[in-house]
Design a protein around this nucleic acid. Structure first.
Lengths: 193, 193
DNA sequence: GTCTATAACGAGATAGAC
DNA sequence: GTCTATCTCGTTATAGAC
C-alpha cells in the first residue's frame, strides 16, 4: 500500500500550518515529528510550495465531502447552516485555525499555485452556502436581506474571524456565541440569541 | 529630535507585519527598505520580539486615540459604529491586514509579551464597543439580541474576518458588504442591506 | 547612532549510497 | 523509499571601530 508516509507528512504539515502558519514551521519540524530526515520529505514533496499546494487540495476535497454529507442528510437550510458552522467548531476544538483562513493571512508570501488554491477554497464554500441560503428562502426558513452571495461571504468571513480571534483567548465560547449570532441573523424566526 | 529612525523602523516593520505576517519578514527587509544595516536596527530594538511588542503598543495607542476621537465627535451609536468600521476599511484600502488580526494568526509562534499585548488590543476594542452598544440601546438607535459583549465580539471578529478574506481577492467591496451587513443586524431600523 | 565583520544557527534543497 | 553528507543562503544576534 503506497502513500502511507505521504499521508503522515500531510497530516503533520497540515497541523503545523493550522497552528503556526505557513512561515512558522519547517521541513525539520515535520521530519522530527515523523522520525524521518528532511531528505526523505523532499522525495515525497519536491519543495515546501508543492507540499503546501497538496495540503490545500486535500483540505478542500475533505471539506467538499463534508458539505456533500450535509446535503445528503437533507434537512432544512438552518440545520445545514448549523452543521456547516459545526465543521469550523470541530477544527477550533482541536486548537487549530482553518487551514485556508491561516493561509489567507500568509497570502502575500505564498507561491501562485497556493494562492489560487486558497481562493478556490473560499469560492467553493461560498457557492455551497449560496445554494443553501436560496433553499432557505424558498422553503421559508430563512429571510435574507441583500443577496445570497453577500450573506454567504459575511457568514464565511464571520466564522473565519471568530476562529481567528477565539484562538488567542483559548476560548471556544467566544467562537460559539459569534457563530450563533451570525446564523440567527439569517433565520426567519427572530431567534433570541 | 530623537526617535526619528526609531519611528521609521516601526513604520516599516508595521507594514511588513500587516502584509506578510510576523514570520514573513526579517530585519534584513527593514534594513534594505530604510537603507540601514541590520546592526543599526539592533541598536534601536534589541530583538525581533521587542520590536514586535513596541509595534503592538504603538498600534493599540493609535487605535485608542481614533476611538477617543469618535467619542469626541459625539454622534449616535450607529454613527460611531460606522466610524469604527471605517478604521478597518482604511487599513484594508492600504492593502494591509489589521496588525493584531495578523498577529492573532501568528499567535502560537509569538513570545509571551507579544501575546499579552495582542489580547489587550482586542480587550480594549471590545470594551469600547460595549459602551457604544449600551449607548445605542439607551438612546433607542440599536436593538441588541443577547448581551452587548457578545455583540461586540461578533462585530470585532466579523470585521477581522472580513479583512482576512477580502485580502486574497484584493476586493474592498467584499469587506464593505460584510461590514454593512454586520452593522445592519444591530440597527433598530431594519435597514435594507 | 551607524558602521563592518562575523558568529552561530536554521532554512530549503540536492547528490548519491544503500 | 530512506539515509548521510553537504551546499547555499537567510536569519538573528553580537563585538567593536568610527
Amino acid at each position: 500500500m503506497a502513500g502511507e508516509t505521504r499521508t503522515e507528512i500531510l497530516d503533520a504539515a497540515e497541523r503545523l500550518v493550522q497552528v503556526r502558519g505557513f512561515n512558522g514551521f519547517s521541513y525539520a519540524d515535520i521530519a522530527t515529528e515523523l522520525d524521518l530526515t528532511k531528505a526523505s520529505l523532499h522525495y515525497h514533496f519536491a519543495g515546501k510550495a508543492e507540499l503546501g499546494r497538496a495540503l490545500i487540495e486535500r483540505y478542500t476535497d475533505r471539506f467538499g465531502r463534508a458539505l456533500d454529507e450535509i446535503e445528503a442528510a437533507g434537512g432544512t437550510a438552518p440545520a445545514k447552516l448549523a452543521a456547516y458552522a459545526e465543521i469550523y467548531a470541530a477544527v477550533l476544538r482541536d486548537r487549530r485555525m482553518c487551514l485556508c483562513g491561516m493561509l489567507a493571512a500568509d497570502y502575500d508570501t505564498l507561491a501562485e499555485p497556493m494562492r489560487a488554491a486558497v481562493v478556490d477554497f473560499f469560492d467553493r464554500n461560498e457557492a455551497w452556502l449560496v445554494r443553501v441560503l436560496e433553499q432557505g428562502e424558498r422553503e421559508g426558513t430563512l429571510r435574507l436581506s441583500g443577496s445570497a452571495s453577500e450573506a454567504a461571504l459575511t457568514l464565511v468571513s464571520g466564522l473565519e474571524g471568530a476562529m481567528l480571534i477565539a484562538r488567542p483567548y483559548g476560548d471556544m465560547s467566544r467562537f460559539e456565541s459569534a457563530a450563533r449570532r451570525l446564523l440567527a441573523t439569517l433565520s426567519a424566526q427572530s431567534t433570541p440569541v
